[in-house]
Design a protein around this nucleic acid. Structure first.
Lengths: 169, 169
DNA sequence: CGATTTGCGTTGCGAATTGCTACTTACCAA
DNA sequence: TTGGTAAGTAGCAATTCGCAACGCAAATCG
């Protein structure tokens, strides 16, 4: 039957790579705190209910993977500033998508604060899937295609195309 | 800028709610497998390198939280079909955002298969943050605002003051 | 029919991870 | 010097993970 059954390991998917760090407990919560303006060990410690050794471990791991950077402050050399790197900032869409999902299905938890367009102060749109030209796409507008088949044929060989909706039913 | 320091617990953020299930190990990988068309216990078991008891536990938990549904097949009552629910399908944007991030910063892992617009077969756009009207936003176009401040006109512009809850989808 | 295989799940146990609490080291301030 | 703060470590209990073996009902085979 289906020829398109893939190994699912990290050789053909960025998801395992992403989860290597962000899949660990507290990673996303630490990141959220960082996005909300926290920068110091004791701040994270107070805001999340995390144990010291775990926080220490996670921060080291996030730094190690280039998601946060660690630099001692010159004016008080006890203090260490943890800041998001570019790589860390790039996780914002994933984090917001997760948060919006949790908010949609959670027990009436209206998230706060809310991320807004600074131009007009209006909250951002829901994170969603869009076509290359920006059109919003729903589950029925989507299909998995083999990478080698992408762009070359438009309506030629459909043998490698799979509708996403067969997942639903 | 100093006023916006929030408790970060699950009372004002959907992220902890989302992580309650999806933060556990293997949850995202199981979901990815489901999105790729796997439906049965032994299929998941073979595709991911997961232990039986863990898979059993995770599937039960995903079902328990309404992310997947479990139904025995009538033609072979040994077989159980695990399928994504609507709630599970709604995790696709978050999963894709994570995957794209992992792919961007991973060791040259071009993900396969690729999600495409079924209308023209072109791969979808990168998951990103957009304004309510669809404009793509960068990190510098964003600001956190208290929920009570959104919708009540800012900068004297009343044309956009309608309370935006779920603009898109 | 009886024997074997298949699909899904459970149990037991050692290993790894987490969490709690106390301790340490470096620094600043009086 | 004394006291307090910031970051990190150490020890130990509790939880979770992972592997292998076992259980069991439903299908399949001879």
């Amino acid at each position: 039957m289906g020829k398109l059954r893939e190994p699912l390991d990290s050789h053909n998917c960025g998801l395992p790579a992403a989860l290597e760090v962000m899949g660990e407990r507290w990673s996303f919560m630490i990141l959220r705190a960082a996005f909300n303006g926290l920068h110091h060990f004791e701040e994270f410690l107070g805001a999340l209910g995390i144990a010291r050794n775990i926080l220490s471990n996670r921060l080291a791991r996030l730094v190690e993977h280039g998601i946060m950077k660690r630099e001692p402050l010159p004016d008080d050399r006890r203090k260490i500033e943890y800041r998001l790197t570019e790589k860390g900032l790039d996780l914002l869409p994933a984090m917001l998508a997760l948060r919006q999902w949790g908010e949609k299905y959670g027990e009436g938890v209206p998230s706060n604060p809310v991320l807004c367009d600074s131009r007009d102060g209006v909250p951002i749109a829901a994170i969603g899937i869009r076509a290359h030209d920006g059109r919003a796409l729903g589950p029925k507008d989507l299909e998995w295609r083999d990478r080698s088949d992408v762009g070359v044929t438009e309506k030629g060989d459909d043998s490698l195309k799979r509708p996403v909706l067969n997942v639903l039913r």
